[in-house]
Write a protein that binds this DNA or RNA. Structure first.
Lengths: 315, 315
DNA sequence: CTGTTAGCGCCTTCAG
DNA sequence: CTGAAGGCGCTAACAG
């Protein structure tokens, strides 16, 4: 870890000047093919790699980004992060992880810390309560996930499309009494948009709407399913897989098995525990990919903040 | 993000020399109280924070560590990482995340990458197949989690104690036909040690041992439970919560409800889905904490590689 | 095309 | 106790 070579060494070893080595290193034009090859040979031979810190000091960028997840054990966020990591590595960025635990205060603290560390960019998994002005300083180097805000880059799921797809499927199967278990409107995407999509479909097809919006937690699903079940109910849509997990536990306990469950989010756990549930994949993997790509483009100044929506795929 | 202040600015603003500012920054002795206060005042006033890269360049350490998890969605590893992150932040270390997906090749690649980046240390969640010689170069700055290897620092769970505690509990409840669902011996800790602890208990108390070691996956638990159920079986121990999840799905489907389940690993998901299962907490949270602490001590040269074992807590 | 010359922000002698 | 000078590894002008 100690006596690593420097460009100076490489220069000496290949009989050229430091700057030539630097040019080769950065694939700059204006180096003869012969010289380049020679220098590259020496580099490989010694397994040379330039000092990050030194480059950072000159270039202002240390090629570090942060990913702030809400919870490390969020099934959906995991899927997104899983595709994000390789994408960052590929471009030479080191992703550091932080957990917000759905606390705006933690987000603030983390962002403060990141700013002091002069980090290149941030992917933030959004949740309700985050105020835009906290994010302001990051406008140019932030990608919001699962949430959008005007002026900020974001990668969102197609909340409306996802719900509509599920409803459509159930409708085609003949269901006419479909209940809904969701999240309060204070959560704009998972809460409001999905619920409204449900209501819209019901209205359009003249179906009775029976809904409850307890929250994101499994236990809330478990506790509240009963409240949306009527004697006519034949199907139930859950806004998230977590809610569906809670709901189905209740249904199982009550031995209610004449109900078609459907939910947004086809995580592996869900697929395994309840393959009978109709799910729609909001495209977590794709979202992770896009978020990383977008952030990198922004960092390199090759893109303005864009708002991306991932199409949902029924599965 | 652009024109941050430097110690030079602070020096000018407080009417001292750069070196004095540097001394204050590093809490070095040999600065008069008055000067120190003045400089500190200016620093706070301007929210000054020194450039990481510049310090790194001089000091060799950029205060970055890596955490290599096997899978981002591992419930147990998540719990450990959750306590690790704050511990690292507190000491000024940035933890970057990597996923090995149980592939030794990925581990190699990641470690190579980390070495090139001149990182300070690594926490590696071990699994079977990792060869010691790959880790050799990291001997001084690596902490192995959930696995041990001679010469390396490690934080392990008390596999034997955990199983014994579960067996003891079941035994006290009157169970005499306890089956076991585990992991192959190629996995030394979760596989071999736990299984042997089971066998030892059976032998000591003269119980019949009925076991199968399918693997780590939920589906394997699901597929293999049947093979360890005899007409006499009244209890079943699973080596991991994941296996237990798979097993209990099968039992539920078969409407087998006269079986006491027990498992190592009391993750929140487990607690929620199956509160009736007897679990023992291997101390994931504590392990994360200790791993971070140990790594930091090693980096600072304040500790040799130690092998730590976390006591299991029945819950 | 290539080498030389300055720094980037910080820490570390070495003189005052 | 404090300031000035030098250098860490690299990039970016500027000369050849």
């Amino acid at each position: 870890m100690q006596n690593r070579l420097t460009i100076k060494d490489i220069a000496r070893l290949s009989g050229v000047g430091k700057s030539t080595v630097s040019r080769v290193l950065n694939n700059e034009s204006g180096v003869s093919e012969r010289t380049r090859e020679r220098v590259e040979a020496v580099m490989n031979q010694h397994g040379f790699s330039p000092s990050r810190s030194a480059r950072a000091m000159r270039g202002q960028s240390d090629k570090v980004v942060a990913i702030i997840v809400s919870r490390l054990d969020s099934l959906s966020e995991n899927l997104a992060v899983q595709t994000m990591l390789p994408a960052f590595y590929e471009q030479g960025y080191d992703p550091i992880m932080m957990e917000s635990q759905f606390s705006t205060q933690m987000v603030e603290e983390h962002l403060g810390m990141l700013q002091r560390r002069n980090i290149d960019g941030v992917v933030l998994f959004g949740f309700s309560g985050i105020k835009d002005d906290i994010l302001k300083p990051w406008q140019a180097s932030l990608v919001l996930l699962a949430r959008d805000a005007s002026g900020f880059a974001s990668v969102c799921y197609d909340d409306e499309g996802a719900i509509r797809a599920l409803m459509q499927k159930l409708y085609e199967q003949g269901h006419r009494h479909i209940s809904y278990l969701g999240v309060p409107h204070s959560d704009v995407t998972t809460g409001k948009r999905r619920h409204e999509a449900y209501l819209a479909f019901c209205k359009k097809h003249n179906l009775p709407a029976v809904a409850s919006l307890p929250g994101l937690a499994m236990k809330q699903g478990y506790d509240q399913v009963a409240s949306v079940l009527t004697p006519h109910t034949t199907a139930l849509i859950c806004a998230t897989d977590t809610l569906a997990l809670g709901a189905s536990k209740y249904l199982q306990e009550q031995r209610i098995d004449n109900l078609q469950l459907a939910s947004v989010g086809s995580t592996p756990l869900m697929k395994f525990l309840h393959p009978e549930i109709i799910t729609v994949d909001p495209g977590y993997a794709e979202a992770g990919h896009q978020a990383a790509a977008q952030l990198i483009e922004q960092i390199n100044g090759r893109s303005e903040p864009r708002q991306i929506v991932i199409p949902a795929k029924i599965s």
